[in-house]
Amino acid sequence: MKLRLILLLLTLIATCVDSTNGEDWPGWRGPRGDGISLETSAPLSWSATENIGWRTRLPGNGLSSPIVLGSRVFVTAGNSSDETRRVICLDTATGEILWNVSVHQGPGGTMHRFNSTASSTPVSDGKLVFATFVDDRGLYVVALDFDGTIVWAKNPGTFYSNHGFAACPVIYGEGVIINGQQDGEAFVCMLRRTDGHELWRHIPTTNLRSFSTPLLTTVEGEDQLILTGSAKTLGLNPNTGETVWHADGPSQKFVCTPAVGHGMVFSFGGSPDKHAMALRLGGRGDILQSGLAWRNEKSMPYVPSPILVGNYLHIINDNGVYTCLEPRTG
């Protein structure tokens, strides 16, 4: 896990270290939530010495991705010796650890053997960094400034899943959206960025663990939050948390983040079956019959997230099979 954190940092830093005007990467899958960078100077190959800007060994374990804001890199880690969860800040140019702050302490609880206590990628609005963790009692959200001072910490609810936790926070408007879908009392909520005050709460119809990070998009001039989990794909009003549309499936449990484009959402569910479906956006209520564009049940992913680039929907499944789909037809 330490190695994975190091490699993730190297991949990002090698991309941006030579570009003083490089695009920030403020959260999971970048500034647009689609996994695509607008950088044109990124190297196409790496080795132990080639295109490596710097190398820093990180204290603790974790599977979260690093985020980059100007001269700062932020990443989370868990320390098994003292059961702390940590947010770490590094200098973008040198890799020097600027600070390493313990933000929570508690047992890791039951989790999948491939998971960690720090699998959720943090997010930043340019002023604060927001990170999410769980222990055996609940889900915790912490906000820190760029000097490593904890501004606020909240416990929006209990959390139970025998696979642990991984969903990443998402910035919208004045809030940060937290996905607490789980086998216990499932919820999705938005907390005010300045003080952690709860602005809205959505209660799923089914209590079922899912780790998919929500995705923001605009449909016919209306902002929507695309959420997969608890056996459904649905769109919420990110200002209120109210359901705009919903559709059952394509499976029951979700890990990967959906993709959006061509007026559709591409949803992938991995348990008990690895299925995919495309839904046409713009509807209201139950859109499964009226909005279904296509389904696919062959070589679909459970954990890896898809990337939509123009007319190509790129998918890598959990067995390493790379599939490219025509997004409008499947």
Rank of each mutant, 00 (worst) to 15 (best):
D82M: 07
T84V: 11
T84M: 10
R85S: 09
R85V: 03
R85Y: 10
R86W: 08
V87Y: 09
I88D: 03
I88P: 07
I88W: 14
C89R: 10
C89S: 15
L90N: 08
L90A: 06
A93L: 14
A93F: 08
A93C: 05
A93R: 13
A93V: 05
A93S: 13
T94S: 14
G95L: 13
G95Q: 07
I97M: 11
I97L: 04
I97W: 04
L98Q: 15
W99G: 02
W99Y: 15
N100F: 03
V101N: 11
V101H: 08
S102N: 13
V103Q: 06
V103W: 00
Q105M: 15
Q105C: 12
G106R: 11
G106I: 07
P107M: 05
G108W: 03
T110Y: 08
R113L: 09
S116H: 08
A118R: 06
A118Q: 07
A118S: 11
A118D: 05
A118E: 02
S119T: 12
S119N: 10
T121W: 14
T121C: 13
P122H: 11
D125P: 11
G126K: 10
G126P: 11
L128H: 14
L128G: 10
F130L: 07
F130Y: 15
F130C: 02
T132G: 12
F133V: 07
V134A: 01
V134C: 04
D135N: 11
D135L: 10
R137M: 09
G138A: 06
Y140I: 07
Y140M: 04
Y140D: 00
V141T: 15
V141F: 03
V141R: 09
V141Q: 13
L144S: 02
L144M: 13
F146A: 09
F146K: 09
F146D: 04
D147E: 15
G148H: 11
G148S: 13
G148D: 10
K154Y: 02
N155P: 03
P156V: 00
G157V: 08
F159S: 00
F159G: 00
Y160A: 01
Y160D: 01
S161Q: 02
H163A: 12
H163N: 11
F165W: 06
A167G: 04
C168S: 15
P169D: 08
V170S: 06
Y172I: 10
G173A: 13
E174D: 15
E174S: 14
G175L: 07
G175Y: 01
G175D: 12
I178G: 05
N179T: 03
N179M: 07
G180L: 09
G180Y: 10
G180P: 05
Q181I: 13
Q181W: 04
Q182C: 10
Q182K: 01
Q182F: 03
D183L: 01
G184T: 02
E185Q: 03
A186L: 09
V188G: 04
C189G: 05
C189F: 06
M190E: 10
L191M: 07
R192C: 06
R193A: 14
D195F: 04
D195W: 01
D195T: 02
G196T: 00
G196F: 00
G196K: 14
G196D: 13
H197R: 15
H197C: 09
E198V: 06
E198R: 11
P204L: 06
T205K: 08
T205Y: 05
T206V: 14
T206S: 00
L208M: 07
L208R: 02
L208S: 08
R209F: 05
R209L: 04
F211R: 01
